[in-house]
């Protein structure tokens, strides 16, 4: 990140008080929830300490986690949580394929590793990260490289898992972040 970009970033995050308050409260809620889960105690002193420390964390680091919350931020979160069960089902389905490959006695005839290049139209950072992690979690494919234009280099272990690639996953990811036109 260059200096001018940093300045722009600062202006963006501190320009509007509403966005700053929103990101502060989101960070605060997340930190306090994590405190309650990790500590597991409900004594008044510990609760008070948790409130205090998560207030400090949220005050200093509010522009790290939710740097620029959109107006439809909650909608994106909701669609993301709807995406997770489909992803887990897909992971399980593809894992059985990989398991079959691993235990096959003539495995070296069946696998055919090669690198494919996919062009997607994704622009936002979060959508590129989500797409890359979903590709890596789906067995048979690993993301080697992804850049800002949305070009992915993918190492896939056989022809079958490479062909199934852009398809439905790209459509779903684009729909989550509102990038389908």
């Amino acid at each position: 990140m260059t200096i001018s970009e940093k300045k722009e970033f600062k202006n963006k995050s501190s320009g509007k008080p509403f966005k700053s308050i929103l990101s502060f409260s989101l960070t605060f809620i997340l930190m306090f929830g994590l405190w309650v889960i990790l500590s597991g105690n409900f004594e008044p002193l510990l609760i008070f300490l948790g409130l205090f420390s998560s207030f400090l964390c949220a005050f200093f680091f509010k522009d790290l986690l939710f740097s620029d919350p959109d107006s439809d931020f909650l909608l994106i979160m909701f669609r993301f949580f709807k995406y997770i069960p489909w992803l887990i089902f897909e992971i399980i389905k593809a894992n059985f394929h990989l398991l079959y490959l691993v235990f096959h006695p003539r495995m070296k005839d069946m696998i055919d590793p090669h690198v494919v290049v996919i062009k997607t139209g994704l622009k936002k950072e979060m959508s590129i990260v989500t797409m890359a992690n979903s590709i890596t979690l789906t067995p048979g494919t690993i993301t080697i490289n992804a850049d800002r234009e949305g070009v992915f280099k993918v190492h896939s272990i056989d022809k079958e898992s490479a062909e199934a690639l852009p398809g439905t996953m790209l459509k779903k990811t684009a729909r989550i972040f509102g990038e389908d036109k």
């Binding site: 894992n95 990989l98 691993v102 979690l137 067995p139 690993i142 272990i157």
Partner: peptide
């Protein structure tokens, strides 16, 4: 090889 070893190691 090492790239294809990552497939079972990382995901299974």
């Amino acid at each position: 090889d090492f790239y294809s070893r990552l497939h079972p190691a990382g995901k299974l």
